[in-house]
Every structure is written in C-alpha cells, then in structure tokens.
C-alpha cells in the first residue's frame, strides 16, 4: 500500500512539474489564464469537498467565503499600496473574516439536521450579496472596481506559478488534514454521526472545524481570483460560484481531493469551449442547462464522480485478478475504500 501511495504521488509530482514548466513551452495567453482559473477553482472545490465529501455537510453559501476573500483582497490592495506584503496581509485578513463567519454559521446550525446548514448558508450568502450591492462606498455595487495588482504579478506567468504553488500547498495541507485523526473523525461523522457521538467524540466541534477549514480555503481562492482579474464585482458573491464549486466536486468525485481538481479542470474546459460554441450555435448560450442535467444524472447514477468511477473499475479489475487467484475480493474492496 505504501508503494501504491508513492506511485500516486509520483504521478502527481510529474503533473505538477509539467504544469510548472508549461509557460516555458507555450505563450498562449488564453491557455495560461484558463489554467490559472482552473488552479483557483480547484482550491475552491477542494475546500467545498472538505464539507460535502468528507463531513457530509451540504453548504449553499460557499460563494460568500469566496466573495469575502475576493473583496478583502481587492479593497486592501486598492486602499493601501499594491505590494506583495499587502497582498499576503489581505489574504490573511480574508481568511480570518471567512473563518469567523463560518465559525458562527457552523455553531448556529450544525447542532441541527443537515438541512439547516444548507438553508442558513443559502440565506446568509443572499444577505452578503445584497450587502455587496448596497454598500457602495466600499464595493462600488454591481459595477465593481478595478485595482492594481502587485508589481510582481504584472507578468501573467508569475501569477500562474503563484496560483499553481498555492494549489499544491493547499492540496498537501488538506491531504494532511483529512489523513489526520481529526480528518478520520470527520469521515466517521459522515458515515454515522450517532455512532461517532456515542464513541465519545463531540461531533459538533469536529463539524464546526470542518466548516471553518472550508471557509478559510474558499476565501484564499477568492483572494487569488480577484487578483487574477484585477477587478471585483458582486458576481463573486452570486449563487453561480457556489454552483460551480458544487458541480466540480460532484462531477470530479466527492470524498477525495483529486476529484475536485479533476472536476474543476473538466468544468472550466467545458465552459471555455461551450461558450466558444455559443457564438455559432445560440443553443449553447444556455449551456448551464447541460451542466444542470449532467449534474442531476450524476447525483442519481454516478454519485461518486469521475474518481469514484475509476476506483470502481480498478477495484473490479484487481478483484477479478484476485478472484482468479484466491477469491479474496472482500479484503481488496475494503482496501479500495480505505484509500478513500
């Protein structure tokens, strides 16, 4: 099993290296921007999966944390001078604010059934959207405002690399987090909350922690997003962002960290090409419908997403091989689940 893990890590390192070297080979501006976008949304989707996939909590307010990060960074860089130090400070500030909000939201609703967190975050993010529209002195409403990014990011490639490094760091941090005793308890909560509670774990503490971790990293994604555009408006708070995170996580595969990254890649590429097609075929202007239908079908027939599907195939194959040798399928199946 250790060698298997190393094999997986080996391929991840190869992919990361190829992505890091990508600007050397290609100077395609659209591709660089698209990939940067994918890195940022991968962070968002991973943070969402900490809630949905690992703890079994549905949040409909993820755009709120994303928007808090985006606005905090934009406002600080706009009001202060745009330096790297300020950029880091603004990220930290966004994370702290998002952490506080997600802590309160979690504390209020996670004692109750799962519906409450979904409803409360939906309503709270609606409130934040209205606040962003109305609080014009800070946000400039729906028109938004442009700001200067730090000198360092004037070069697209530098920002591309920064986003990639952030993605790798968040991936490593979160994979450490979900493998920690804390993360194991979260998975236990997802599988059977009552049983976990009866084992003596204070499940509320764990669920609130998951909520805070998810909020913090969503805010980081928002900070990066606003710097990548050098512009922010209320669209960062809309339901679309939450839906993106949701789609990416579900289609990629819940309960894994690779899944959301895969999902973000698939969805961003699909969005890119479908909106390109929309210029020729007007029906593609409503491409969200296709996503909605794919999403519904995925929830019904395909709840484990792309990663889950691959795992099934692999488990089947190795299962067959094992069956041919010794008929040891249950053990292998248990192992396949353990990998998750």
């Amino acid at each position: 099993m250790i060698s298997k893990l190393q094999g997986k890590n080996f391929w991840l390192i190869v992919i990361a290296a190829v992505l890091a070297a990508f600007p050397l080979f290609s100077d395609s501006r659209t591709m660089t921007i698209l990939l940067t976008q994918i890195f940022i949304f991968s962070i968002l989707a991973m943070s969402y999966d900490i809630l949905l996939g690992y703890t079994g909590i549905v949040s409909f307010g993820h755009a709120m944390f994303f928007g808090v990060g985006a606005y905090t960074t934009a406002v600080i860089l706009d009001r202060m001078e745009p330096t790297l130090g300020m950029f880091l400070l603004s990220i930290a500030a966004g994370m702290v604010i998002a952490g506080i909000i997600s802590f309160i939201a979690g504390l209020l609703t996670l004692r109750l059934k799962s519906h409450f967190y979904a409803m409360f975050t939906l309503a709270l993010s609606g409130l934040f959207l209205v606040a962003a529209e109305k609080w014009r002195t800070v946000t400039n409403g729906n028109d938004g405002f442009t700001f200067r990014a730090p000198e360092f990011f004037q070069d697209r490639t530098m920002f591309y690399l920064t986003a990639l490094i952030c993605l790798i760091l968040v991936y490593l941090l979160l994979s450490r987090f979900v493998a920690s005793p804390m993360g194991r308890v979260l998975i236990a909560v997802r599988e059977n909350e009552q049983r976990t509670a009866s084992l003596g774990y204070k499940t509320l503490h764990y669920k609130v922690t998951a909520s805070v971790v998810a909020g913090i990293f969503a805010s980081l994604a928002g900070s990066l997003y606003s710097v990548s555009l050098r512009f922010v408006n209320t669209s960062v708070m809309t339901m679309d962002i939450t839906l993106d995170a949701l789609l990416m996580t579900i289609i990629g595969g819940v309960g894994t960290l690779i899944g959301p990254i895969l999902g973000a890649t698939v969805i961003e590429f699909a969005q890119h090409y479908l909106s390109g097609l929309a210029r020729d075929y007007p029906i593609f202007e409503r491409w969200i419908i296709f996503f909605g239908i794919v999403y519904i079908l995925a929830v019904i027939f395909f709840p484990q997403g792309i990663v889950g599907w691959f795992r099934q195939i692999r488990a089947k194959r190795s299962g067959k091989r094992a069956a041919a040798i010794k008929a040891k399928q249950p053990v292998l199946k248990a192992k396949a689940e353990e990998n998750g």
Partner: peptide
C-alpha cells in the same frame, strides 16, 4: 430516485432548481 438520502436530495433539488430557472430563459 434519491428517496431516503438527505444529502443527495438537497443536492439534486438544487440542481433541478438550476434547470428550471434556465429552462425559463429558454
């Protein structure tokens, strides 16, 4: 199809909400 699974119900009804409001635009 997702009867009895709360998380899936929440997810799927939200997805349908998306389809319904996009269908309106179509």
């Amino acid at each position: 199809p997702v009867y009895g699974n709360h998380v899936q119900q929440i997810l799927i009804t939200l997805g349908f909400m998306l389809v319904l409001s996009e269908m309106l635009k179509v």
